[in-house]
């Protein structure tokens, strides 16, 4: 069975139709990349999958492991195993990073029928994962994302992903704003999580990331639809030629 199955998905925001019949099937273990011009609806797709309120689904379906995603609350989707690494992670003043991470981890564990982590176990886990991503203790002492640089915010997203152990990871431009070393750290972080029962949807504008996270399938999205699907070579082609010819393809 497909891990993520999106069929003829239509969605709008403020009366404007953004997703216009999108189809996408990701099987367990696969990494898919979506590339596409600015404004084509890539982030919208990720928000609709994660369950953001402002987006109204007007048609089609999306299932995770055969279960209707669109019926679920955002936190239920997360518990079921959907994870979205945001294009623009926001700052949450006043909410301590560790409190946030611990509440998140234990919330999904509880919903998945697993035992909550004890404080020492949780701290050990966070330290281990943070170290792999070169996230300093001092960052975790601050409120969530507050005062983090752009690159630090992105690494923090991957830390959350690693802690929540999702089945289906959607990464929205996680590479943008990263320097060369950070890109490598993030890509290694993602590659460590690659597993035969886990799927990835990597939204990016740059071939560079896909050198590190080699996708099985590359899609081109334009005007709210997938307009072309190919192998990793498609990313190289786009890098060379741009999106000319795709803008009107939809």
């Amino acid at each position: 069975m497909a891990l993520l199955e999106v069929k003829d998905l239509h969605a709008r925001v403020e009366e404007k139709e953004i997703l216009r019949g999108l189809n996408l099937t990701i099987n367990p273990g696969e990494v898919h990349a979506i590339m596409g011009p600015n404004g084509s609806g890539k982030s919208t797709l990720s928000y609709v999958l994660a369950g953001k309120d402002d987006y109204e689904v007007t048609g089609g379906s999306a299932t995770l492991d055969g279960e209707d995603l669109l019926e679920l609350e955002p936190d239920e989707r997360a518990a079921k195993g959907l994870f979205l690494a945001f294009q623009y992670p926001i700052e949450i003043p006043g909410v301590a990073s560790m409190t946030f991470l611990r509440t998140a981890v234990n919330s999904v564990r509880k919903k998945r029928g697993e035992e909550e982590l004890s404080t020492p176990d949780f701290l050990r886990l966070v330290r281990e994962r943070a170290k792999e991503l070169n996230i300093k203790d001092d960052m975790l002492k601050r409120p969530v994302n507050v005062g983090f640089s752009g690159g630090e915010k992105k690494r923090n997203e991957i830390l959350q992903m690693a802690l929540l152990e999702p089945k289906m990871c959607v990464l929205d431009e996680t590479d943008s704003g990263l320097d060369i070393d950070a890109l490598k750290i993030v890509a290694d972080g993602v590659n460590r999580l690659r597993a035969k029962n886990r799927g990835f949807l990597v939204i990016t504008h740059y071939q560079r990331l896909l050198d590190h996270i080699v996708p099985d399938v590359v899609h081109v999205m334009a005007r709210g639809k997938i307009v072309r699907t190919g192998g990793p070579e498609l990313a190289h082609e786009l890098e060379a030629k741009g999106y000319a010819g795709y803008e009107n393809a939809a």
């Binding site: 955002p74 936190d75 926001i90 909410v95 946030f100 998140a104």
Partner: peptide, 25 residues
Amino acid sequence: DDLLFYLRARGIPKKEAESLLIQSF
């Protein structure tokens, strides 16, 4: 709403997400 969504997207149920934000306030 954006803060709430961020917390909920990490698996934190609505009431608890609200509590975290109210507490920070």
